[in-house]
Amino acid sequence: MTKTRFVFAVTLSLAGALPALAENPMVGGAPMYDTKTIVENAVNSADHTTLVVAVKAAGLVETLSGPGPFTVFAPTDEAFAKLPAGTVETLLKPENKDQLVKILTCHVVAADAMAADIGKMIKDDGGAHEIKTVGGCAFTASMQGDKLMIEDGKGQMATVTIADVKQSNGVIHVIDTVLLPQM
């Protein structure tokens, strides 16, 4: 019995001495693992089925499975549902692949930008920071209270609803609106 108490006491003292590791938030009811790629995690999110279908249709699976780093502003299924009726179906047609690729790559930044980093850039830039995407879009990040907001090329505002979902090749920030380029 003495041995067990000693081992238990040592375990408690070691556990108290180690820093707690921050866990990724759940997304779409699924755990997100920082050891998996953006694509490997996204396919498990029940909230991102439309995004996954679009990424596959655009031929971007290999790219977003690559080493990165990438920051992806990942619209939910509800975000896609806010688009005018028929928009998603039209974009998924093979003849519209270029437009789909443009829209999706406008959600990707070639960096590993955590929300605190973006917040600091916003503050350093006087309240708004331009984000340049791999799709050639320029969006504006700002803070609305404690919420990170992204304004797209059409003047729509997307709210980051889940920030800092670490991936092996970057980070995902879940957003509630599809970002559209100025066309």
Rank of each mutant, 00 (worst) to 15 (best):
I122A: 10
A57L: 05
M183Q: 07
D164H: 10
M1W: 15
L83Y: 06
G170W: 03
L21A: 12
M143Q: 14
V52N: 11
G135H: 01
K147W: 06
T140F: 07
A163R: 13
D98I: 00
A141R: 13
F73C: 09
H129A: 14
V171F: 07
P75I: 09
M183A: 07
G127S: 06
N169A: 03
A111W: 10
T49L: 08
G28F: 09
A42F: 04
K102V: 00
T76N: 12
G28I: 07
Q167A: 11
L179R: 08
L21P: 00
M157N: 14
P75W: 05
A79S: 07
T37H: 04
L100T: 05
L104K: 03
M183D: 11
T87G: 06
A46W: 05
D125T: 12
A20D: 06
G126Y: 02
A57Y: 03
L92E: 10
N24S: 12
D164A: 09
A113T: 10
I162C: 09
V52R: 06
A128V: 06
T133L: 03
V39W: 00
A57D: 13
M183E: 08
C106A: 08
I103L: 06
A113S: 14
G170H: 05
D112V: 01
G145T: 03
V171P: 08
Q99R: 13
V134I: 11
D47W: 04
M143E: 14
D125N: 15
D125H: 15
M32T: 00
I172W: 08
V88L: 11
Y33C: 10
V88G: 04
E62H: 15
G29R: 15
V101D: 07
L148I: 10
T76Y: 07
G68V: 01
Q167W: 02
A158R: 01
K82D: 13
T37A: 10
M143V: 08
A81Y: 00
A74F: 06
I175Y: 02
L91T: 07
A54E: 12
F73Y: 11
A54T: 10
A85W: 07
L179D: 03
A81I: 04
G127Y: 07
T133W: 02
A58G: 14
T2C: 13
N41V: 01
L64Q: 09
N96L: 02
A17Q: 13
T11L: 15
L51Y: 03
V109Q: 05
K147E: 14
P84M: 02
H129T: 08
K36P: 00
G126L: 01
G86C: 08
S13M: 14
G119A: 14
K102E: 06
E78T: 13
V109G: 01
A113R: 04
P94V: 04
I38K: 03
D112P: 01
L18N: 09
N169R: 02
G29H: 14
L12K: 12
H107W: 03
F70M: 03
G29A: 12
K82N: 14
V109R: 02
G145H: 12
A17E: 13
P94T: 01
N44S: 13
T35Q: 10
A138P: 00
V43M: 06
L83K: 04
M26T: 05
L60D: 05
M149G: 03
L104F: 01
L92A: 07
Q99S: 09
T90D: 15
P75T: 09
A81C: 11
T133Y: 01
H129W: 15
D112E: 08
L21I: 05
N44P: 05
M149N: 06
